[in-house]
Computed example of a mutant assay.
Amino acid sequence: MQELLTTLRRLRAPDGCPWDREQTHESLRPYLLEEAAEAVDAVSEGPDALAAELGDVLLQVAFHSVIAEEAGTFDYADVERGIVDKLVRRHPHVFGNVQVADAEEVVTNWQAIKAAERGGQPRRAADRVPAALGALARETQAQKLAGDARGERGEVRGTLDRAPDSAEGVAEVLAATVAWARSLGVDAEVALREHTQARLLALPDSEEG
């Protein structure tokens, strides 16, 4: 990691790379999203692909850390220390004396500790689901936060039949589909991504961009 940080500092130096020197936290946002998405894709592509894509994600962490280091706001050591402290704090059943019965209780404790870290202050649902998530993933989280029951195939058909031919109607059908996917234990976002990837791979090659 130190070698990666040193490389980024060299790229950001006055005599470094013009493109790297121009980047900011804001300009790097699409790259962080893109690299995270490619890492998700690589999970099904094998260990070599996953290792390579995780390296690209780590590059983004280093990039933001060096930019912040230059501004004097934080550095990589702060990032690393923060996540280690958080993991220890939120796993008292491993690093403390708390007893848990199963994974479900671990999640319950995790949420309680998160709330305590905020001083017990409630958070808006809109703040709990990242806006940059894919639309299907956001709807999945919204349904969970709302305590919505998981749907069935028939509800998708019913929604399709009564939904208006409009953007709102399409959204209602998609939301019903997400609920159906939840009932099957399927991640709708991942399922559609894999389906789309398979379709793209089946298309003929083209010289066009």
Rank of each mutant, 00 (worst) to 15 (best):
M1R: 11
M1F: 06
Q2L: 03
E3Y: 01
T6P: 12
T7P: 02
T7I: 05
R9E: 11
A13D: 11
D15W: 08
D15T: 15
C17K: 13
P18W: 08
W19M: 14
R21C: 11
R21I: 11
E22C: 10
E22A: 15
H25M: 09
L28V: 09
R29I: 13
Y31D: 13
Y31N: 12
E35W: 00
A42G: 12
E45W: 03
P47Y: 04
D48S: 14
A49D: 01
A49M: 10
A51R: 13
L54Q: 04
L59I: 11
S65K: 01
V66A: 01
V66F: 01
I67P: 02
A68E: 06
E70M: 03
G72S: 04
T73V: 06
D75S: 13
D75K: 04
R81C: 14
G82C: 12
I83Q: 09
I83R: 04
V84T: 09
D85F: 06
R90V: 15
V94N: 10
V94M: 10
G96F: 13
G96I: 02
V98W: 10
Q99H: 05
V100S: 09
D102T: 01
D102A: 05
E104A: 08
E104Y: 06
E104L: 04
E105A: 06
T108M: 15
Q111W: 15
E117G: 10
R124D: 09
R124M: 02
A126S: 03
P130L: 05
G134D: 00
G134V: 01
A135M: 15
A135P: 03
L136F: 00
T140G: 03
Q143T: 01
L145K: 12
A146W: 04
R150N: 13
E155V: 09
D161F: 08
R162C: 05
P164M: 05
S166D: 07
A167L: 02
A167R: 03
A171S: 12
A171N: 04
V173M: 04
L174H: 01
A176F: 00
T177W: 01
A179Q: 00
W180Q: 07
A181H: 02
S183K: 14
V186A: 00
E189D: 14
E194T: 08
E194N: 10
A198M: 08
L200Y: 13
L201A: 14
P204Q: 03
P204G: 08
S206L: 07
S206V: 07
E207C: 15
E208G: 12
